[in-house]
Amino acid sequence: MDLNHLIEKCKKGDRKAQQLVYNLFKDKLYALCLKYCKNKDEAQDNLQDSFISIFQKINTYSGKGSFEGWLKRITINKAIDRYKREPYLEPIDYHQVAQDDTTIDDKDLGIDLNQMLLFIQELPDRYRLVFNMYELDNYSHREISQILEVSEGTSKSNLHRAKVILKQKITAFMATQKNSIANGY
């Protein structure tokens, strides 16, 4: 059964077809949720909400664009809705942040993927959303500013600050690991 056929069946409310669609895309969308949410529990909740929304709105899918892209947009939007309305204070001095270097030596790349995911999850909500949207899901700052209802400048500074924080975390993590090795742990 091809995907279009499955989608048609989903539009008719066929539960088996919905389960097949779920099985096809659950891993990708859950990974997306993990990146956009604070932790696994919230990612799990977001995944559920997203699939419910997907199957409720599947009739609006015209079939013109990529279905996977459509699913991802809904999932990302759900995550954004989850965090966008939370109170946000911008504690950053933009000029100060702008001077910070956001590059890192690629010898530090040997960090476990789950650890890197944890770094992302630990970012403040707004920074995490902007970082994910811009760096991992190819949104432009203009799009981000429209979706998050902030200025493009804020989006850029949030991204920069997110990178600075991530760099600090990676550096600190590597330093800890080195110390552990040096101490024979």
């Binding site: 590059t103 690629d106 790349l109 995911l117 811009y134 760096e135 991992l136 990178k163």
Partner: peptide
């Protein structure tokens, strides 16, 4: 010493 890479690129590659 390795080459310097942007944090964003590193995460893109990883994820």
């Amino acid at each position: 010493m390795g080459t310097k890479k942007d944090i964003g690129k590193i995460f893109q590659e990883k994820f």
